[in-house]
Simulated assay, not measured.
Amino acid sequence: MFENNVMSSKSKIYFKNQQDLLYSSIIIIITLALSACMAENHLHQAIRYSEASIIADDGATIARHSTTAISHALSVQDQEYISSANRIHLAMAIVSLEKAIENGYYDNDDSARNAARIAIAHFKEIKRNN
């Protein structure tokens, strides 16, 4: 009878550890999935604000939208799943958006819009590679 109590207490400890392992695994999977979704959302937002830069009426608005696009692009850059090739596209997109901001502030609207178009091309390349 004593042996049965010992076995049942061992099996209870084992089950609790297995249950903890299961819950931990589920939490890790959910965290990774949400992280990927958040990065995808930031990439989508960067594209969206870059597109808004293209259709903006004046240089200040182009610069404002491009600044917001950069903040979303920097959030994508922090994600671990981004490949080295995509990191290069991301860096080039950020540089293009910086040019869009600079040209927008100097009222060189056409150059600012072209820089935003180049950024969109790089963002879409990242999206295509994922």
Rank of each mutant, 00 (worst) to 15 (best):
M1T: 11
M1D: 11
K12F: 13
Y14A: 14
Q18K: 12
D20L: 12
L22Y: 10
S24L: 04
S25E: 05
I30V: 11
I30Q: 08
L32M: 05
L32G: 01
L34I: 06
L34D: 00
M38K: 13
E40R: 12
E40L: 14
H42F: 06
H42C: 07
H44T: 13
Q45S: 10
R48K: 10
S50G: 07
S50T: 08
E51W: 02
E51N: 10
A52C: 11
S53V: 03
I55W: 08
A56N: 02
A56D: 05
D58E: 12
A60C: 09
I62W: 04
A63K: 00
R64W: 07
S66Y: 01
T67V: 05
A69P: 00
H72C: 03
H72T: 03
L74A: 08
V76C: 05
Q77S: 11
D78R: 14
D78A: 14
E80V: 11
E80H: 09
Y81L: 04
I82D: 00
S83D: 00
N86F: 02
A100R: 00
A100S: 08
A100C: 02
I101H: 00
I101R: 00
E102A: 10
E102Q: 09
N103R: 05
G104M: 01
D107G: 05
N108D: 13
N108V: 15
D110H: 15
S111D: 15
S111V: 11
R113F: 07
N114L: 15
A115E: 05
A116G: 03
A116Q: 05
R117M: 13
I118K: 12
A119Y: 03
A121S: 12
A121Q: 10
H122R: 12
H122T: 06
H122Y: 09
F123A: 02
F123S: 03
F123Q: 04
K124P: 06
I126G: 03
I126D: 01
K127R: 12
